[in-house]
Design a protein around this nucleic acid. Sequence first.
DNA 1: CGGGCTTTTGACGCCGCTCAAAGATAGTGG
DNA 2: CCACTATCTTTGAGCGGCGTCAAAAGCCCG
Lengths: 242, 242
Amino acid sequence: MTVVFNERNKCSSCPIRHRAVCARCDDDELALLEQIKVYRSFEAGQPIHWRGDELTHFSSLVSGIAALTKTMEDGRTQMVGLLLPSDFVGRPGRDTVDFDVTATSDVTLCCFKRQPFEEIVEATPHVAQRMMEMALDELDAARDWMVLLGRKTAREKIATFLEMLVRRSHVENMSIPAIDLPLTREEIANFLGLTLETVSRQMSALKKEGVVSFPDRRHFEVLDLAALHDATGDDADGGMIV
Amino acid sequence: MTVVFNERNKCSSCPIRHRAVCARCDDDELALLEQIKVYRSFEAGQPIHWRGDELTHFSSLVSGIAALTKTMEDGRTQMVGLLLPSDFVGRPGRDTVDFDVTATSDVTLCCFKRQPFEEIVEATPHVAQRMMEMALDELDAARDWMVLLGRKTAREKIATFLEMLVRRSHVENMSIPAIDLPLTREEIANFLGLTLETVSRQMSALKKEGVVSFPDRRHFEVLDLAALHDATGDDADGGMIV
DNA sequence: CGGGCTTTTGACGCCGCTCAAAGATAGTGG
DNA sequence: CCACTATCTTTGAGCGGCGTCAAAAGCCCG
């Protein structure tokens, strides 16, 4: 299940070098991190952390997608975060997290042992500053998400979600490429605070209207970007940041 | 409308000295902050910032309560943060915020001019570390809030909200003191992703069941704490942090 | 006492959830 | 290569919780 890479991949050639928690580190600081890092891989569907488990490592997501979810006693589940490459896993200043972290696709993490990492945070301002920035960015995203959860209709939620994926895929306009749909219907439902049936129905509706198409279950194409945006309920400039 | 205090209140006797962004500062660092700080007051209902306005000051909330809200084109409004004394207003690394900040009660802020404050953040690790901690705490709260918005019923939302106020009032058990209800029904609705009518109905239901009572519109008393907790939908230990 | 606000309560309808079943798709072993 | 199965997805029927609209009641301040 968990595969540990022993190759000593150089940070300097790391794909998330300039975006992760180490983004602002100079070479000396990077060398410190390099000494305490270990790569780990998880297959799609594998748990990375359970809520409440002691957190022995912090890590940066190098590749793949992971979900943070909270589940109520009776099974109702809400996704509370979606981790993309360069995002940070862990909670300095607390020794557990109170959500589950699950690999949604195959995932590679760059793990740091907790103790030495926290010492580095104390010692190197660049890391604390970068972590503050990343936490604030996540907070901004969480706040947009709260508007979606509290106030948007099912249709608007789906349209907003698809538009977010479009924006994130950094697609050149003109062409209509198939965009990856990295979650199952159930995961999308847990992301958006809906049931999977409602997700499916709203997607079918957008398809019937010619706004999007679904070549297969894990991809979609945008046929009418303006119509998609209209369906999000957001204003012209788009307030959503994710 | 906006009253500027010119008194030079000493940081050392500040009520939020040990919890705000300056919590970890030593005397020298505090002296730097003291030079650039100015107090400002806002009356209940006054706007503190508008979404998108340039952010000339950062600040700590010294007393009172302020709300962060986002409003959609058609008027649907969602509260995305509730600021209590010691909470920070502002977004280092960005020159606007994309929500409105409103004084919900009479409010006093300890304001720092932006430019010099950001220099201090760069220069003093204690401040960046404290801001990271505060951002992560807010993120935890936002995640619990997302579960509430996405998955809880109206009844559970109201019960969770009231229980949060109880917890925050740090009330000695035994007695049944009147607890402050710092928001109007409409503000509560915007906080919880409901309409004000539903808020009123659910409160009436809890009252009819003898779980709480409402001596007047701005206060409530808990008559049955266990029943209140049962109504939240949370597990026995309570996962909510706010 | 009267006007404007907030809050409560009622009646009704719709959106999204529940329950149920059929249809796709992928993986497995003969 | 084709069943056979497990899983994911779609679609349908029906219902109920919460929103909408409306009006009455309570409260504050002049």
